[in-house]
Design a protein around this nucleic acid. Structure first.
Lengths: 157, 157
DNA sequence: CATCCAAGTAAAGGAGCTTTACAAGCATGA
DNA sequence: TCATGCTTGTAAAGCTCCTTTACTTGGATG
């Protein structure tokens, strides 16, 4: 009894999750691009968020992004060239370098946050989606699958 | 008034959608791999589902997958080499070729469907997620963003 | 029959990652 | 003291999957 065949043919949960994520992310990305950041992908915003106020090392960034430290290093190279991050001396010394955000990145974080909230509010209005309920249910599902620590967010295709 | 700062810090809807999708997809993919298909990625399953009972041309497949026809052609090349699809003469003639599933692909479709349903049932039990409710809310959201026609499902990173 | 169009294919190239390999700084125990 | 080992950071090569560019082929349309 895995399926009720005379119910309306709702797409599978997995497909719905995928389409919802993709649609919201694409819309978000387009709005952020239109706001002056056409050359920043979602992963860059994720990196900014991880680096946050205190910064982090490339290796920490790699772990949180779920990629190799080389990939994270390349990302930092790129962002540094474009003026979004700086490699500074790490207080703990050693070979470590603390990657910190520049003001340009902080401005992006602020704008992206605004876009995100506007978008969610619009979804609640336009689609009539009960976003608090949706968030609660999704949080349950995520915790059920991943435990308490939230996993890195990566493309899975 | 974009944020209520004294509410519990639930992650953003976009993040929750991403994590939920990724977790469920990864779990799904691992189970399918364990069931004997370690070399099939989600996009292959999507292709099987699109080709379905009647088959389709490479160009149709490309449109539904949201990639170029060359990319779809390469996918079909690969799947044909591995015995999952066949290029047959197209009833409409012309240069068209009808790509159809082999029995191997149909077996995969059946197993993947079972895995999907098992997984959803487990989620409802383990996580206590109200999956019908979740599906309804997600469907609302998707229709609100995409209209009636469901968009191709692609990686967005 | 000349023209155009859509389908398929071929080849090159690029983005973004991994793998392999190595150098540099520090901690640890014998 | 100092050899060992661990971890960070980098460098270089290679791989996968996609796109871009360009071409061929079969049929429709005037």
């Amino acid at each position: 009894m895995t399926r009720d065949d005379d119910s309306p043919p709702t797409p599978e949960l997995l497909f719905l999750l995928g389409m919802a994520f993709q649609l919201v992310l694409t819309e978000f990305n387009e709005r952020v691009a239109a706001a002056g950041y056409p050359d920043l992908r979602p992963v860059h915003g994720m990196a900014f968020q991880i680096l946050g106020a205190e910064g982090a090392t490339s290796s920490e960034l790699a772990a949180r992004l779920g990629v190799t430290k080389q990939a994270a290093g390349q990302l930092v190279d790129d962002l540094e060239r474009r003026g979004y991050v700086l490699r500074t001396a790490h207080p703990a010394g050693g070979r470590r370098k603390l990657v910190v955000l520049t003001d340009a990145a902080r401005r992006h974080l602020g704008i992206a946050g605004d876009v995100l909230h506007d978008l969610e509010a619009e979804l609640a209005r336009r689609a009539g989606a009960d976003t608090p309920l949706l968030r609660a249910e999704l949080l349950r599902l995520v915790h059920g699958l991943a435990g308490d620590d939230l996993p890195p967010l990566r493309p899975v295709w």
